[in-house]
Write a protein that binds this DNA or RNA. Structure first.
Lengths: 259, 259
DNA sequence: AAATTGATTTCCGCATAGTGGAAATGAAGT
DNA sequence: ACTTCATTTCCACTATGCGGAAATCAATTT
């Protein structure tokens, strides 16, 4: 019994389980063993075995040698490339974001909401500074992250209500909204930050391609990126970069979509 | 009944069907309607409906507005990015390949074998020349394509035999092998080319990450890229680019792995 | 507004595909 | 050879997914 909460008749759980196997991979993993997959997904061994067989058969996973670990295969790559090609703004964003990462020495990233979490879709590491940190595929909590704050702030009241938010999340969202109105970027209040080891600024972005608002962020260790620098340096730069992107790709600011 | 031929007890067909829905998307599609998905996958409507519901639920597909078409969603993007991050050579290859595409005015691409077909994983279009053509996610036949020839030539005899090749494919492979030995790149013989409208040269590449040999290619319309130019200009350039890549990423030439 | 057409979703009884505990196999160590 | 740990296979059970058909929903036409 996995953590699936769907019991809708329309929900194909085998498919969901199979995908959860693919989702188990992180960019930093140098392949996963069978058992690691079972642990990460919470699926029983026998099930993982059948699913990996299928995924391998279809090219989504590969098993270099006989007893090697699993890796994402060519088919996964292809889907990703098709997806990126159809999400044109990411390509457009890539250059300025890489530049921003280099200039500010922070990790730039693009994230979307995925259920209860923020899903990191793409990251740009600064080329000089070392900042081994979050990677694509990683999920961070909405509450307490600046990207979560930016995204929540842009949700319409109805969409937000659908999440059945508690009071903390409500006021978290409210703070985000005020910050965005005031200066166009969001920073999670110190006392709510989900990880003490990470400071980040975020700017929401309305990616028509998926229904959800999403966000661009810059993050780094607090030593490198104190509150002052977020407010005065990195925040404004990120905001301007995202505004430029909105102009180039012909979108209106995400906050306006709140409805 | 789709074209699945697996009847192995271990094969999870619901998962395979769900993935075939994702696979139905091409980079050029501006979203797919429900019915287009049904057509492309050969699945009955009701089934597509349940599968898209699930995929939407999980973020692999998105449905911008109420009655909009389906697009690949954030989760698909994320998987792809995880996959690309773990396939480091593609990143390394990106610059030289783009350069090669520009210099030669051809479409450069990277493909892997996926079952009976060659699966285009990534493409680099020349920036000046117009060459709207194959896209990531597209599949082309092995027989008659230069990339197929390059890949077949690098397969070990055992692996090749496992494909149950006919005589045509055997000699196709043999030709490829000889070409690669002689000058390091492969061009499909004129009379076997699978599409008259496409000329291409390929060089195999051993991507340890997936078990399969893969290939880099340059292709264009025959008017732009005659046999002579393939032999004397583009072929050698591509071969040298791939050799340089092998050196940089510390791999031995794919042909040597044939065993 | 009623009628037509066409796409999409829901219904629901049935057969089968998928499940997971347990046992068998396989791979490393000691 | 023995122990331990990872992976695959077996198999009886039943929940799951199937797909034809009917019901909705949307967009046109009359």
């Amino acid at each position: 019994m996995s953590e699936t909460f769907e019991k809708d008749r329309r929900f194909a759980s085998t498919l969901a389980r199979g995908l959860s196997v693919l989702r188990a991979f992180r960019a930093s993993d140098d392949g996963l063993s069978h058992m690691e997959i079972a642990e990460r997904t919470g699926l029983p061994n026998a099930t993982v075995s059948r699913l990996t067989f299928t995924l391998r058969e279809l090219g989504y996973l590969s098993h270099a040698g006989k007893n090697d670990r699993y890796r994402l295969g060519p088919a996964a790559l292809a889907i990703g490339n098709v997806a990126s090609a159809s999400v044109s703004f990411l390509e457009t964003a890539s250059d300025p974001m890489q530049k921003l990462a280099n200039e500010t020495g922070t990790l730039a990233l693009f994230a979307v909401r995925d259920g209860e979490k923020m899903l990191l879709v793409k990251t740009w590491r600064p080329q000089n500074t070392a900042s081994i940190w979050l990677e694509p595929g990683h999920r961070i909590p909405i509450f307490g992250s600046s990207s979560g704050m930016a995204v929540m702030a842009c949700l319409s009241d109805a969409a937000f209500a659908a999440l059945e938010p508690d009071d903390d999340l409500r006021s978290f969202r409210q703070t985000g909204y005020e910050q965005l109105l005031a200066r166009g970027f969001a920073v999670a209040p110190n006392d709510t930050r989900y990880a003490a080891s990470v400071n980040a600024v975020s700017v929401p972005f309305h990616a028509g391609e998926f229904g959800e608002p999403a966000s661009f962020s810059c993050g780094a260790l607090p030593e490198m990126l104190g509150d002052a620098r977020m407010e005065e340096d990195v925040g404004p730069k990120l905001r301007d970069a995202v505004r430029a992107l909105e102009t180039r790709t012909g979108r209106s600011p995400a906050l306006l979509k709140r409805g």
